[in-house]
Design a protein around this nucleic acid. Sequence first.
DNA 1: GTGTGCCCTGACGTTACGAGAGGGTCAACT
DNA 2: AGTTGACCCTCTCGTAACGTCAGGGCACAC
Lengths: 252, 252
Amino acid sequence: MGYSVGQVAALAGVTVRTLHHYDEIGLLSPGERTRAGYRRYTEPDLDRLQRILFYRELGFSLEEIATILDEPGAGPMTHLRRQHELLRRRIGRLQEMVAAVEKAMEAQTMGISLTPQERFEVFGDFDPDEHAQEAEERWGGTDAFEQSRRRTAAYTKEDWLRIKEEAGEVVRDFAAAFEAGVPADDVQAMDVAERHREHLGRWFYDCSPEMHKGLGDMFVADPRFAANYEQVAEGLAVYVRDALRANAERRS
Amino acid sequence: MGYSVGQVAALAGVTVRTLHHYDEIGLLSPGERTRAGYRRYTEPDLDRLQRILFYRELGFSLEEIATILDEPGAGPMTHLRRQHELLRRRIGRLQEMVAAVEKAMEAQTMGISLTPQERFEVFGDFDPDEHAQEAEERWGGTDAFEQSRRRTAAYTKEDWLRIKEEAGEVVRDFAAAFEAGVPADDVQAMDVAERHREHLGRWFYDCSPEMHKGLGDMFVADPRFAANYEQVAEGLAVYVRDALRANAERRS
DNA sequence: GTGTGCCCTGACGTTACGAGAGGGTCAACT
DNA sequence: AGTTGACCCTCTCGTAACGTCAGGGCACAC
């Protein structure tokens, strides 16, 4: 019936203090306690611990790990796929470093000295990632942006595909309602708006109705976002904005 | 003439604060300062910083990095070779993790659940390393042992070969002196003893003359060490001990 | 001569634990 | 029944490697 802290610690190769810590911060609280207050870890707890250690070894902070693990709708397979992808990336990174070292060794034996830039090439280039940069300019350093950055850091290619698909669905539904002549403040349009808000919450950051409304305004004001909708149907950007506004009002 | 903190920070992809910190703890102090007190980093400083970042990314503590970098008689090539080896090891480790994830994925799709041991197999096995374990029993947790453990952690196979060769030379010289009938307290024997002490200091830990004397006593008292010398020549263990003693007295 | 940007030195905050202190719990041995 | 030893608990303090201001110089442009 469950494992004690000591047993789990030995099993997982961590200290008891670490488990206490994870309990303290709510990252991993044992499923049960004995009447004497002893921690009892269950099988699912071990599962979670294994994932924690995995992401930890890849350099994620405990806070990041918490958001990753508590991500809604992520089954075991999601994590395994993500882990696989992260490992592949990390290995790629190390192989770059190997190449850099080999280059340096050659330079050394040839008596050439590298320029400062060459020396640090292999560092610093932690993917500025188009998407992240765009976002930074836009919401620069806000709380939502921070949250988004942290969560998306762990997304794999497959995650992004799913996200794109989900987002595409929302746009299609907006377009369908728009072309069917459904008013933007109709419950049908507002429901799509709400789904959009949930989509953001699920994948990027918690989006309050007010924030969502502001986002809608930006969809119209910023040509880069507007184009996204306008290319589907002329006038769709304004329609979406109005739907988001109506939905925000409904939900407040 | 030199780089400012800001320039170096941008170049290496670290913050200014990090450079200040490295200066504070003496890990990387800029070669010069302007009359106004501004830090000026020279080319060798950049070199050192690059190495620091390298070992840091591989998970070494700054203290460990300091000892690695200030290791006597380690040229650029030594570091490059070491880095190459460390990277290869780390990649191997990650590949093990990939294999573990793939195994888990298979188990998942087959509906099998792994045992707790299986789940944590990939962790915990951070090489108990025969050598280190022996040492731990012997000097359990002493300062010297800690120092030794930290330094040897970064040694590559090639380092170990060099160490063995050096150690072998010392033993051969002891044996030669012993068989030539040179007294253990002769300056010739004491010089070999001193070389042995330096060898320890270079590769493992700072060994005071007193510690060295204690070590000599152990060479005789402990059959496992004694055998090391006795198999070369009968009576050599005692001879070595006496030489270490004589040398310790000479040097204090 | 007065911004504007970069630099300085403290000093305090944070994360992820390590290392005890002081004290219960529990199965075993006597 | 008592005691011993191996666990467990909570609480507090310490540490490493910085992040994050605060308060104040320096240097060059306009």
